[in-house]
Computed example of a mutant assay.
Amino acid sequence: MAINTIIFDLGAVLIDWHPHHLYNKIFTDSAQRDWFLENICTNDWNEEQDGGRTLAEGTELLVKQHPEHEVNIRAYYGRWAEMLNGPITGTVEIFKALKDSGNYKIYALSNWSAETMEIAFSQFEFLDWFDGMVVSGIEKMRKPEPAFYQLLLNRYNVEPGQALFIDDNMRNIIAAKNMGIDSIHFTTATELEQELRMRNIL
Rank of each mutant, 00 (worst) to 15 (best):
D9Q: 09
E118Q: 14
Y77H: 10
S110C: 03
I181N: 10
T91W: 00
C41Q: 07
Y76P: 15
F36S: 02
Q162S: 12
T116D: 07
Q32M: 08
W129F: 07
A189R: 04
M133T: 15
T42Y: 10
D16A: 04
L153Q: 09
R74F: 13
G180N: 05
T187D: 14
E70H: 13
N39W: 09
T116W: 06
N24C: 09
Y104C: 01
A56R: 13
P160H: 09
E68K: 11
W35D: 09
I166N: 06
Q65F: 01
D182M: 12
N178S: 13
K99Q: 09
Y77R: 08
A120H: 15
M1P: 11
E193P: 02
L14A: 02
T91A: 06
M198D: 14
G51M: 13
Y107P: 02
G137E: 00
M133V: 15
I173N: 08
Q194G: 06
S30G: 00
G90I: 03
E38C: 08
S183E: 07
S30F: 00
E60W: 05
Y156R: 13
L37N: 07
N39Q: 13
S136N: 04
N200E: 10
G137Q: 00
N103H: 15
H69Q: 08
W35M: 06
A176R: 03
T42W: 10
R79Q: 14
I7H: 03
S101G: 01
L62C: 05
V92I: 15
G52P: 11
W45I: 06
E125P: 05
Y104K: 02
G78A: 03
Q123P: 00
